[in-house]
Design a protein around this nucleic acid. Structure first.
Length: 153
DNA sequence: GCCAACGTTGGC
DNA sequence: GCCAACGTTGGC
């Protein structure tokens, strides 16, 4: 089983929204590296760290679980969607998305400052300067530490 | 709102 | 295939 960090702007879709909905299709990813993680590497049952970006504070807000493997992202050929891409069609889809189930919401968001304060998390991708990927792998040991922080916060 | 970092596009 | 121009991301 693998662990992932997936970013979403809470103004657009937050952990509260996922809690309400129970599950969501992770539409709108328009970056090849992030797409490839979903298509090639994500497996059923993989755990998702739900990250709030452009937020106050930005950080990890809760957990989800991958509940369906990657399928074509229908928003990519929906002209009304802000994620529309004219080069993607039902016949030849360019973008894909997995489905994510709600698992838990942390009592408090684990902010970037919280993450930076933990010596063992210094290697996390999300803490690297200029890192803009919206989906990135998280190591098991990193996940365990974050889980621990979540329980004590 | 600013702007650094980075990805993408397109002319050549 | 290079690289300048441009667009986007996302912390602050």
């Amino acid at each position: 089983m693998s662990y992932w960090l997936m970013k979403s702007e809470p103004e657009v879709y937050s952990i509260e929204d996922l809690k309400r909905d129970g599950s969501t299709e992770w539409e709108g990813v328009r970056n090849y590296q992030a797409r490839n993680f979903m298509v090639k590497d994500m497996k059923l049952g993989d755990v998702v760290l739900f990250y709030h970006s452009n937020a106050n504070p930005s950080g990890i807000a809760g957990l989800g679980v991958v509940s369906r493997l990657a399928e074509p992202d229908k928003s990519s050929w929906n002209k009304k969607s802000s994620s529309y891409d004219e080069k993607s069609t039902p016949q030849s889809p360019r973008w894909f998305c997995v489905k994510v189930d709600f698992k838990s919401q942390f009592n408090k968001v684990i902010s970037l400052d919280d993450l930076r304060a933990e010596p063992k998390l210094q290697g996390m991708e999300v803490l690297k300067k200029g890192q803009r990927l919206s989906i990135m792998p998280v190591r098991v040991d990193e996940f365990k530490i974050i889980e621990k922080i979540a329980m004590t916060k």
